[in-house]
């Protein structure tokens, strides 16, 4: 177990130590103390580390993660797991805006609420939020799954290309081109497996699925007069 106290170690030094480990190394364990809302903790990890951060973190925690498992016992600032490629990020508290922004793969689990624009421009990441999400979540989402056990605020899935959004609670007005879609047995199965993977116990029966109406994919000639 490597123990890093951010009262005495700089963020740059801490991240550099993680980056020194080769990507084909065995999994190793890191315990991080006194994060105190510092930005860019455990970003760009390339090896299968297990990083446990004890306390609340600032912006972009776990950004660009590949292979590692990052656990935050606390709350997160904006851009949690931004552009995550693979691996897992787990947060015990709430997350600020733009969690999982543009993520390409991997899994993000938020035990509390996520704020606005959760999963903005997601491109393959799976995000499971046990609480609720703020406005414009799933904005311009392209691939992946966003699962919300609570409610979603206004403009969910605005300008969504693809991706599946599952919400158990209420939604505000849906965003442009976002519509409710049928829950097929395949979707129920996919959701059920994802919840298992996220270690979230919740029946799939109450979820509604939202996705793209695909009306913004192509230019519509009736709109020519607007230009």
């Amino acid at each position: 177990m490597n123990i890093v106290d951010l009262n005495t170690t700089s963020v740059r030094e801490f991240n550099a130590r993680l980056h020194e480990v080769r990507s084909d190394s065995e999994a190793d364990d890191w315990q991080v103390l006194n994060p105190k809302g510092k930005h860019s903790l455990a970003v760009g990890l390339q090896a299968p580390h297990r990083v446990g951060i004890e306390g609340s973190v600032g912006y972009y925690c776990g950004g660009m993660n590949k292979s590692a498992k990052v656990t935050v016992t606390g709350q997160c600032g904006k851009g949690l797991g931004e552009n995550i490629m693979s691996g897992v990020i787990h947060v015990s508290g709430n997350a600020a805006e733009a969690a999982g922004a543009s993520g390409r793969g991997g899994l993000i689990v938020i035990d509390g609420d996520a704020s606005s624009r959760c999963g903005i421009s997601m491109k393959g990441v799976d995000i499971v939020v046990t609480g609720s999400v703020g406005h414009m979540s799933g904005f311009m989402a392209q691939a992946g799954r966003l699962v919300v056990l609570g409610d979603a605020d206004e403009d969910l899935g605005a300008s969504i290309y693809e991706a599946d959004i599952y919400v158990r609670g209420e939604t505000g007005a849906l965003g442009a081109d976002c519509v409710e879609k049928e829950m097929t047995p395949d979707h129920v199965k996919s959701l059920s497996l994802l919840l298992q993977q996220a270690r979230v116990e919740c029946p799939t029966g109450d979820f509604h699925r939202y996705g793209s109406a695909r009306k913004l994919y192509n230019f519509h000639v009736d709109n020519a007069c607007r230009y």
Binding site: K36, G37, S56, G58, Y59, G77, A96, S115
Partner: peptide
């Protein structure tokens, strides 16, 4: 503007935090 400004307040560990 950012959480780190609140990090030194007494009782922050159990504070309710939200945007």
């Amino acid at each position: 503007s950012e959480y780190r400004a609140l990090a030194a307040l007494p009782g922050i560990e159990t504070a309710q935090l939200w945007e």
